[in-house]
Write a protein that binds this DNA or RNA. Sequence first.
DNA 1: CTTGACCCTAAAGTACACTATAGGGTTTAT
DNA 2: ATAAACCCTATAGTGTACTTTAGGGTCAAG
Lengths: 152, 152
Amino acid sequence: MDKLLKIGEVAKQANITVETLRFYQSEQLLIPKMSNQSGYRLYSVQDQQKLNFILHSKKVGFSLSEIKQLLSLRTDKDQHTCEEVKNYTGDKIDEIESKIHDLQKMSLALSNLHNACCGGSESAKQCTILNSLDDPELFANSNNKTLGKNHD
Amino acid sequence: MDKLLKIGEVAKQANITVETLRFYQSEQLLIPKMSNQSGYRLYSVQDQQKLNFILHSKKVGFSLSEIKQLLSLRTDKDQHTCEEVKNYTGDKIDEIESKIHDLQKMSLALSNLHNACCGGSESAKQCTILNSLDDPELFANSNNKTLGKNHD
DNA sequence: CTTGACCCTAAAGTACACTATAGGGTTTAT
DNA sequence: ATAAACCCTATAGTGTACTTTAGGGTCAAG
């Protein structure tokens, strides 16, 4: 019932290398079970879902150590108090909402550029509509408290 | 009229170090003008807006070289054709929308955890509501084509 | 039964984004 | 005018996240 894939198959599906998967294991992020006859790694469906979570989280700017903490919320529930879980998830939700906000601003600014640009083969300098759109909003400060370096 | 700040003042406002600002200059990301009497860096308001853009972009997972390209859309318009600008912005908008989608899924999953958790001082293992919420959705594949390594 | 495509470990190397160090000049307050 | 608090360059070092190398074992096909 539980379909187990070998490392190469998982890597191919996720569009990463086998070395990256072995690295994630060495970092305690994704630990497959090992076949005891061949010594090969065997990844379950849950392992693959966990990998998807890791890759999506990386994409939006979370570090491997943050991802490890997020994953531990579900797998090491007995290590944390409810209070810790509640505070931690609350903080992460705020951080995520702030990232969404920033991305929406970027999307809007780029859409303005995209829509204003005629798309022709001439230099974008010639594209007068684009020139008239030198919108300082793109760089405007959205007054965000989570800007700058992380305070670990 | 144009208020110019020294590196330390800019660093403080942005909550980064002066070394990072000098590093961004060496990487051609943010080039302030230099005072010709003291040799000090002087940052204009536009420089500070550009810095905000850099920091916000970094936060949501863009690399410095991607950010450099995004910035060059506005500053080196004569180097690109309208077609290039239109294609590039179109691709970036898709990428941003995909990041927003991923973040919304994470936010939802964490909100479920957050709301289910009683927040008390006992171990989260005891929190039966949380236990019943072992939702595989958090790790589900959203079938996203931009997953995995970047294809530069 | 061997060959090619896979898998393994261990350890060294790399790219990116800073961060720290050494040695020195400038500005501002007392 | 001198000391603290800033600024400068140049270069070396660090942490993160892989990536490569070296030297082998496993497995399915012919």
